[in-house]
Every structure is written in C-alpha cells, then in structure tokens.
Computed example of a mutant assay.
Amino acid sequence: MVTITVRHRILDGAPRPAVLVGDVLISDEPATNTRHGGDRRIFWLLDVGVQLVWEAFRWEREWYVDMVRIDREGDTFHVTDQYLDFVVPGMGPAYRVLDLDELGDAVRDGHLSVADSTEMLTRAQRFLDTYLHRGAVFPPPPIRPYFAADHRYPDITG
C-alpha cells in the first residue's frame, strides 16, 4: 500500500489523499449530497480506467461507474472523465449505459479524439466482459477487500 495523491473532478479537482494497492487507487471523500451520511470511498481500476462509486449522489444501492483516463505524474494521479458511464444496481450483473450522447458530442466537437474514444470503448468492453457479463463477480474482486456496502470501510491507512 502506497500513499499518493489523486486529482479528479469530484471536489473540483483539488488534490486528495489516496492509496495505491496494486492496480487499484482508493480515496475516501467526505459525503456530500448523499443519503447515507458517511464518507464515500472512490475506487479506480487502473488496468481498465474506470472510477467506481457506491451510492453516489443521493442514490441507494447502486454503483456509478465512469470511464476515465488516468495519468500518473510522480506521486499524483490525474483522472479525466471520458464521458461514458454505467450504473450498476446492487451487486450486478445488470447495468445501464449513460451519456452516449455526451460521448458523441465530445468526439464531434474535438474534446475527445477518435483514437482516444476508440481506446476507451475497448476498455469499456473489457470492463463489462470481465466484471458484469457471463456470471462475473461484482463489485470487482480487486476492490472487495476495501469495500463495505454500509460505508463502514476497512481501514486503508495502514
């Protein structure tokens, strides 16, 4: 477990403390606009470039999954939204696809290149095939030791 920093659009991109465990980046954020009232834990799977948040916003018993680009600069990871999102009710395997229109607009308007969108769509398919299709286990096994549905997360500070 390595302590690092992450910058992402939640909390306006301010640098936030996080830990790196293998190919998983984890950050605890103060709850804002949620029903559960406790902190929320954000997970990033570096190998497929996804951000996962349990009970985001005021949702209950749903995961919000963002396709993201993750760049590392020293001990700081920079997370950039890539427009395509999924909502996973409960512990899967069902899911809904969101923001295909935003993805199309971003490519059309030059905010996301054709090459970057193609690479992201390939990663999105790999994420779905690995963690949601054909009897796959959700949430992804790499995050399970650090997740708790009741928001009483296991300690990651070491």
Rank of each mutant, 00 (worst) to 15 (best):
Thr122Trp: 09
Arg41Trp: 10
Tyr95Ala: 03
Ile70Arg: 03
Asp129Ala: 11
His78Ser: 05
Pro145His: 12
Val97Leu: 09
His133Tyr: 09
Pro141Tyr: 11
Gly49Pro: 02
Ile70Trp: 05
Leu132His: 12
Arg58Cys: 06
Asp109Ile: 01
Gln51Glu: 14
Val88Glu: 07
Leu100Ala: 05
Leu45Glu: 05
Phe138Arg: 13
Tyr64Thr: 13
Pro93Glu: 08
Ser117Met: 03
Asp75Val: 02
Ala94Tyr: 09
Leu84Gly: 02
Arg41Tyr: 09
Pro30Asp: 10
Arg144Ile: 12
Glu29Thr: 10
Tyr64Asp: 12
Asp81Gln: 03
Pro145Ala: 15
Phe86Leu: 15
Ala115Ile: 08
Thr118Met: 07
Trp54Gly: 10
Asp129Gln: 13
Val88Met: 08
Ile143Phe: 10
Asp66Thr: 04
Trp63Phe: 06
Pro140Ile: 09
Pro142His: 11
Tyr131Lys: 10
Ser117Phe: 01
Tyr95Leu: 07
Pro30Arg: 14
Asp109Pro: 03
Ile143Ser: 11
Leu128Phe: 02
Ala31Gly: 15
Asp39Thr: 14
Arg69Glu: 11
Glu55Tyr: 06
Tyr146Ala: 10
Phe57Trp: 14
Gly135Ala: 14
Leu103Glu: 00
Phe43Ile: 03
Arg58His: 09
Leu84Val: 03
Val50Tyr: 05
Gly49Glu: 02
Asp101Pro: 01
Thr118Gly: 14
Phe57Pro: 03
Tyr83Asp: 02
Tyr146Gly: 08
Pro93Ile: 06
Asp99Asn: 11
Val88Gly: 07
Phe147His: 15
Asp71Phe: 00
Asp85Tyr: 02
Pro142Ala: 09
His111Trp: 06
Asp39Val: 13
Val137Ser: 13
Asp47Gly: 01
Val48Ala: 05
Glu60Val: 15
Pro142Arg: 11
Pro140Thr: 13
Phe57Gly: 06
Gly104Ala: 10
Gln125Asp: 12
Glu119Thr: 09
Asp116Trp: 04
Thr130Arg: 15
Ala115Lys: 10
Leu100His: 04
Met91Cys: 12
Thr118Val: 05
Asp101Met: 03
Phe147Ser: 13
Arg61Cys: 10
Pro141Gly: 10
Ile42Ala: 09
Val107Leu: 00
Leu46Val: 03
Ala136Met: 13
Tyr95Cys: 04
Asp81Leu: 00
Pro89Asn: 10
Thr76Arg: 05
Met91His: 15
Arg61Glu: 14
Phe57Glu: 14
Leu98Cys: 08
Arg35Ser: 12
Thr32Val: 13
Val88Thr: 04
